[in-house]
């Protein structure tokens, strides 16, 4: 994993660093907008939303790569709650901007990159090891599942 860093063959997706930080971990990739309130168990970080492509998966310590957040404006508090309980994603990368995710990450100090190209959602797979580098506004795919 280490040797790929910055070398040839590392695929990266450019976005905009919104909340500073860097985190490396297993990716959870979703093409559907996620409702944080109601859609995620605030105690365990497991996705509850019926029919969602991440239903049943735990967000804790993962890199959440998604289209965007949706639904309730209380979603930011759900991210904050998860962070305080150690159940939040380690970093988040989104295709579209949404204020719930930005606020949630900002008050919880979770690295966030927004505006990555939509093709990243097809190219990255759940379980891939990826790095979110919000200092440079980049998501790097380090190794395949």
């Amino acid at each position: 994993m280490e040797m790929h860093r910055g070398g040839f063959g590392v695929v990266s997706y450019k976005g905009k660093g919104v909340v500073a930080g860097r985190f490396r971990g297993e990716a959870l990739v979703s093409v559907k907008p996620l409702s944080l309130l109601g859609g995620v168990d605030p105690d365990t970080g497991v996705v509850l939303e019926k029919g969602h492509d991440l239903e049943g998966k735990g967000l804790a310590g993962k890199v959440l790569v998604m289209l965007q957040g949706k639904g309730s404006t209380v979603g930011s508090y759900v991210i904050y709650s998860l962070a305080k309980k150690g159940k939040a994603p380690g970093a988040i990368a989104t295709v579209k901007m949404d204020l719930m995710t930005i606020t949630g990450c900002a008050i919880s100090e979770i690295p966030l990159v927004c505006g990555i190209p939509e093709e990243a959602l097809r190219a990255l797979k759940c379980g891939d090891i990826v790095e979110v580098d919000a200092f440079q506004g980049v998501v790097r795919k380090l190794s395949r599942k």
Binding site: K16, V18, P42, T73, V74, V78, L99, T103
Partner: peptide
């Protein structure tokens, strides 16, 4: 941070606000 992320780089004065996240069921101890 929000202004910067949307690339607007500026703020605007507001006349009123309405806050959500009031129920203890939703926001919890954190």
């Amino acid at each position: 941070t929000i202004a910067d992320s949307y690339g607007c780089g500026t703020t605007i004065k507001i006349r009123s606000a309405h806050v959500s996240g009031v129920s203890y069921k939703n926001i919890g101890d954190p």
